[in-house]
């Protein structure tokens, strides 16, 4: 970790330093916004929501393949964030914190759906809804999403977290419980399969 990283971590640990200053909301980092939100700043939450929800919703939409369920899970995730905001340890990266909560909510929901013996696909995920392609602007984009859906879950999640959501290998490996090296390998293999499937699509 860099010297400035150490300094900011120490300041966060002590609850002092340049975290809740007069930085404008637009220029503030997610971590600064989270700290203001924890301190009771409503505008900070609105800014935090504007900045974090597209990534979180995209992640949930690709996990569930169902817009309605993704919206439900988004609400569950933010409700959990709100309930646990007092336990947020200052200095913790916010997006991995949110994504980990979202992923756990998804897994809990999938587990309870299994118990309720809902109509699940073979890999235990919820069935892909029809007529959702309006989310995707072009045929290639749609083919890419379909190729991603067809990947083994380990590869799909690795790509989803690192390449699409934008987490670092270290952050994604914490969430998935894998080593960064193993995760890098999954991303690489997943990308090779994606490219192969896209080539097949382009040749058609």
């Amino acid at each position: 970790m860099s010297a400035s990283g150490d300094a900011s971590l120490s300041a966060a640990w002590l609850g002092v330093g340049p975290f809740v200053t007069d930085t404008s909301l637009a220029a503030a980092t997610l971590e600064e916004l989270m700290e203001r939100y924890v301190d009771g700043d409503r505008a900070a939450f609105e800014a935090l929501y504007q900045r974090s929800s597209p990534k979180l919703f995209g992640y949930l939409l690709r996990l569930t393949r169902n817009r309605e369920r993704a919206e439900d899970l988004l609400q569950v995730t933010y409700a959990k964030v709100h309930r646990a905001r007092g336990s947020y340890l200052r200095g913790a990266p916010v997006l991995p914190w949110f994504i980990a909560i979202a992923r756990r909510s998804f897994l809990d929901e999938r587990r309870s759906a299994k118990v309720r013996t809902e109509d699940l696909s073979a890999d235990g995920t919820l069935p892909e809804p029809k007529g959702e392609s309006d989310d995707l602007s072009t045929d290639v984009a749609e083919a890419l999403e379909r190729a991603l859906d067809s990947l083994p879950e380990a590869y799909r999640e690795a790509i989803l977290l690192t390449k699409i959501t934008g987490l670092s290998l270290a952050e994604a490996s914490e969430i998935l419980g894998a080593t960064p090296t193993a995760l890098k390998l999954r991303v690489h293999r997943g990308y090779l399969q994606l490219r192969e499937r896209l080539e097949q699509f382009k040749r058609r």
Partner: peptide, 29 residues
């Protein structure tokens, strides 16, 4: 690869989240 951004959550859902997360803000710390 170029990944497209999915459409955002509906305005109703966003409003509901914003409302729920604005409650009891003073108790957060």
């Amino acid at each position: 690869l170029e990944w497209s951004d999915p459409a955002p959550p509906s305005a109703k859902v966003s409003a509901s989240i914003q409302q729920a997360c604005s409650r009891d803000l003073e108790k957060g710390r």
